[in-house]
């Protein structure tokens, strides 16, 4: 029976390990510095991770569908630059839908290549990382983009406003998380994403249009990127061309930390949110302890490798890999 108990605990750790780790982590930091769990601090952290988080929500769909998206950072730079540029040219009311249309167009292009043409997603999105970066630079002429009248625009409401004391970015992140969580876990589309990522061939043999499902996961992903670009642009009202650089790998780190398998077919929106929050709170906790921002890189490294290691170890029932 000891076996059974161990198995059950192992199973629990494998399923909810990330949540348990998160809670333990919060407790430790809270004991070290009570300011850590002050409401304004927590809100501050969530707000600062909202952009990363929104993108991670979309990438979760792509990863569960069995693919990767390395182009999201570069794509966010694009949408930020585009919406800022169009803001002064055609006004915010038109700039926002125009930016969404263009970003979704990029997502559709990637989705077409990966879904319908069945090209390897790692290379396609690697190529698109570069290509979209070029597109952004061409659009902006390589210059930073700034809104002329920073005081007089209502555009800042998305990044800087608040409703009932809650910052708008948090509300958008939360709303999107709930909607996408329902989409993934409760709708036929979500089920199909899991099936396609779990076993694409079996999905096709069950009459699921694999190509269309993959295509749609990239639409979801690029839609989230557009929202993130909007938040970024509205928060700073000006931007460099490289604002999203490197974000793709941080996002992937959050999704993996949440427990999604890179092979596809597993993971949830909720776990991704936890992954994002862990990354955010590590950064914040270390800052409160007086450590420089780059220490978080090292800590994140340790945590990612540890988290995935324990996950893998729990599945195979031993800590060290049996590879000779």
């Amino acid at each position: 029976m000891a076996d059974m108990t161990r198995e059950r605990i192992g199973g629990l750790l494998a399923r909810q390990g990330i949540l348990i780790a998160f809670v333990a982590f919060m407790i430790v930091f809270a004991l070290a510095n009570p300011r850590f769990i002050a409401v304004d601090n927590i809100l501050g952290v969530v707000r600062s991770t909202a952009i990363l988080g929104v993108i991670a929500l979309g990438v979760t769909f792509v990863v569960i569908g069995g693919n990767l998206d390395l182009s999201v950072g570069s794509m966010m730079s694009f949408s930020t630059i585009v919406v800022l540029d169009l803001h002064d040219k055609i006004g915010p009311a038109l700039a926002i839908p125009a930016m969404f249309a263009l970003t979704l167009g990029l997502g559709a292009f990637i989705g077409f290549l990966v879904g319908y043409l069945k090209l390897n997603s790692l290379i396609v999105t690697l190529g698109m990382l570069s290509a979209i970066h070029g597109l952004t630079l061409t659009w902006s002429g390589g210059k930073n983009m700034d809104i002329a009248d920073k005081e007089g625009t209502w555009f800042s409401v998305f990044g800087q406003g608040s409703v009932l004391g809650l910052p708008v970015p948090i509300l958008i992140f939360a709303l999107l998380a709930v909607v996408l969580s329902l989409l993934l876990s409760r709708t036929p589309f979500g089920r199909k994403v899991y099936a396609v990522g779990g076993n694409g061939t079996a999905a096709v043999f069950s009459g699921i249009p694999r190509a269309r499902v993959v295509f749609l996961t990239y639409l979801v992903s690029s839609g989230c990127v557009a929202v993130a670009g909007l938040l970024q642009a509205s928060r700073s009202l000006g931007s460099q061309n490289t604002v999203g650089q490197g974000l793709e790998l941080e996002v992937l780190a959050a999704v993996i930390l949440g427990g999604a398998s890179l092979l596809g077919g597993s993971g949830t929106v909720f776990k991704t949110v936890i992954g994002v929050l862990i990354l955010g709170f590590i950064q914040n906790g270390l800052l409160l302890m007086g450590l420089a921002f780059y220490v978080q890189y090292v800590v994140t490294w340790v945590i990612i490798v540890l988290a995935v290691w324990l996950d893998v170890a729990a599945k195979r029932g031993r800590l060290l890999s049996p590879i000779a």
């Binding site: 329902l182 409760r186 709708t187 199909k192 779990g198 999905a203 009459g207 077919g265």
Partner: peptide
């Protein structure tokens, strides 16, 4: 080709008709 091995029995069995088994937008 026949099964998504990581999925449970029920979800495998209803896979071809999951789009039709809806109440509102949800399965």
């Amino acid at each position: 080709q026949g099964l998504v091995l990581g999925m449970n029995c029920r979800d495998n069995m209803t896979l071809p008709q999951v789009g039709a088994l809806r109440s509102g937008p949800f399965v």
